[in-house]
Simulated scan of single mutants.
Amino acid sequence: MLEIPIAGKTGGSDESLEDVAYRVIADRVIMLGIRPNASINETQLSKEMQMGRTPIRAALKRLENDHLVVSHARKGTFAAPVDLADLEEIAEVRRALEPVAAGMAAGKARADARQTFGKYSEVIRALEAATVDQSDLMRLDLAVHQLIYRAAGNGHMEEILIRYANLWTRIQGVMLERRPLILEHILELDDVIQAILAKDEAKASKLMADHVSGFSTYISST
Rank of each mutant, 00 (worst) to 15 (best):
M1H: 08
L2F: 06
I4T: 11
I6V: 14
I6T: 12
A7V: 05
S13C: 09
S13G: 06
D14A: 10
E15Q: 12
D19A: 15
V20G: 01
A26I: 06
M31D: 00
L32R: 14
L32A: 06
G33H: 10
P36I: 08
P36Y: 01
P36T: 08
N37R: 09
S39P: 15
S39Q: 06
T43W: 06
S46F: 10
K47V: 14
E48T: 13
Q50F: 12
P55C: 03
K61I: 14
H67R: 13
A73M: 12
A73T: 12
R74T: 15
T77W: 09
F78V: 13
A80M: 06
D83E: 06
L84E: 06
L84R: 11
D86E: 05
E88K: 00
I90M: 06
I90D: 01
V93M: 02
R94E: 09
A96E: 11
A96K: 07
L97Y: 05
L97E: 00
E98W: 01
M104H: 03
M104I: 04
A105R: 03
A109K: 07
R110Q: 13
D112M: 04
D112C: 10
A113E: 07
G118N: 07
K119H: 11
K119A: 14
K119G: 04
Y120E: 01
V123P: 05
I124D: 00
L127W: 04
T131V: 09
V132W: 08
Q134D: 00
Q134T: 05
Q134N: 01
S135C: 08
S135A: 15
L137A: 02
M138T: 14
M138V: 14
R139A: 10
L140W: 00
D141M: 08
L142S: 03
H145F: 01
H145K: 01
Q146P: 02
Q146H: 14
Q146W: 06
I148Q: 05
I148V: 15
R150F: 11
A152H: 04
A152V: 13
N154V: 14
G155S: 05
E158C: 10
E159M: 11
L161V: 04
I162T: 12
Y164M: 09
A165N: 11
A165S: 15
N166E: 00
M175C: 07
L176M: 07
E177M: 12
R179M: 12
P180L: 05
P180S: 04
L181H: 13
H185E: 02
H185K: 12
L187E: 07
D190T: 09
V192L: 05
I193A: 08
Q194H: 09
A198W: 01
A198F: 00
D200I: 01
E201F: 04
E201L: 09
E201P: 10
A202D: 06
K203R: 15
A204W: 03
K206R: 13
A209F: 03
D210K: 01
D210S: 13
V212M: 09
S216E: 02
T217E: 13
T217I: 12
T217W: 13
Y218L: 10
I219T: 12
T222Q: 00
